[in-house]
Design a protein around this nucleic acid. Sequence first.
DNA 1: TCTTATCGTCTACAGACGTAAACGATGAGG
DNA 2: CCTCATCGTTTACGTCTGTAGACGATAAGA
Lengths: 124, 124
Amino acid sequence: MTGESISEAESAVLTVLWDHGPAAAEDVTAALAASRGWQESTVKTLLGRLLRKGAVRARKDGRRFIYSPALAREEWLSRESESLLNRLYGGRVAPLVAHFSRHRKLSKRDIRELKRLIGELEDD
Amino acid sequence: MTGESISEAESAVLTVLWDHGPAAAEDVTAALAASRGWQESTVKTLLGRLLRKGAVRARKDGRRFIYSPALAREEWLSRESESLLNRLYGGRVAPLVAHFSRHRKLSKRDIRELKRLIGELEDD
DNA sequence: TCTTATCGTCTACAGACGTAAACGATGAGG
DNA sequence: CCTCATCGTTTACGTCTGTAGACGATAAGA
């Protein structure tokens, strides 16, 4: 179910749907013309591919279609993240954090949030 | 410098070089024939592409070449990880950890290591 | 020196990807 | 009813990827 892999360009389209909810191709294009400089044609192609992959649903509204995400953002985040974790860090989170720590890529804010996060976890 | 992007298959080849140090195509093939079922031809193609991209170096040793990584593993880890963090989590680490926490994907071991990690960090 | 095994390089090829124009159906306005 | 604007669908096309066979040079052994 919804198993196909989502390309970078496709995920940009999905992101618009996640952020703004159901929308017509025109609206999606409006958003992506601004952020990525894409033509309406491009967006239509991507929507078509997402439809075929089952990652997007289309409900007819008169002459046009209203598209909405069929794949949940959290599900997509999981897939992408786990894929990277598996490929690079043996499927675990700690080594990734360790990597960023080694390279001092953790902001004060990151550290603060991480402290709170694992603080909440330790007693479950 | 070493700017080209590395594909999944290519990174498998690099991984062999990182793990076993400089090696001839034959040795790399031995490792990858086992783990991925690749033919020698495939590995040679990949080595060639990595050479062209500057991610691998070749020193001639008699009739053959000895290949070694020109791109450091840590550098590659950084690129891949940061790219994902940027695309999915606003470039920060904490939201990714939060995501895994939400989905109970943090093992006991992860939690233990994360505790130690941020414990070491808090007083720097 | 002639032959052959062994390397690396070149060529191949289908499928995914990014990007977009061309085309065809169809609804709305005249 | 006819025409045009508007959608979605088809077609296009260069590049990258995964996978691998074909080819050509050349060193080593006979």
